[in-house]
Amino acid sequence: MPISGLVLTFDSPVEQNQEALDAIKAIPEIDLGQANDRKLAIVVDSDDTIRDREIWDTLQQITSVTNVAIAMVAFDSECEEEASNDTNSQDDTPEDTQGANRTNV
């Protein structure tokens, strides 16, 4: 259930980026909020952390979006529980060959 409040920064005033806005509106998990100059507030409410990550990656790949900043993240045990079942790691980092081993008491 990841819920996050994000601020997108465009390379020009928000209203001049209609194509990008259409692409963002097409993502059903996103609600658009206030816009001011080159910044746009959005909320992402996705079903799981994998989808959350996909949306994050999609936003970052929109060419006119120069920055994605986080304003708030909600989390709880359900989210953690679900994420802990997901063993995928980011493509560009070395895989954890030993798992998330940690010291036991």
């Binding site: 409040g5 601020v7 909020g33 409410d45």
Partner: peptide, 19 residues
Amino acid sequence: RREILKSAAMAAAGSLVTG
């Protein structure tokens, strides 16, 4: 609760946009 948290998320993001 979900709506409250979404509302909080929008408020937090909106406050950064209005600057």
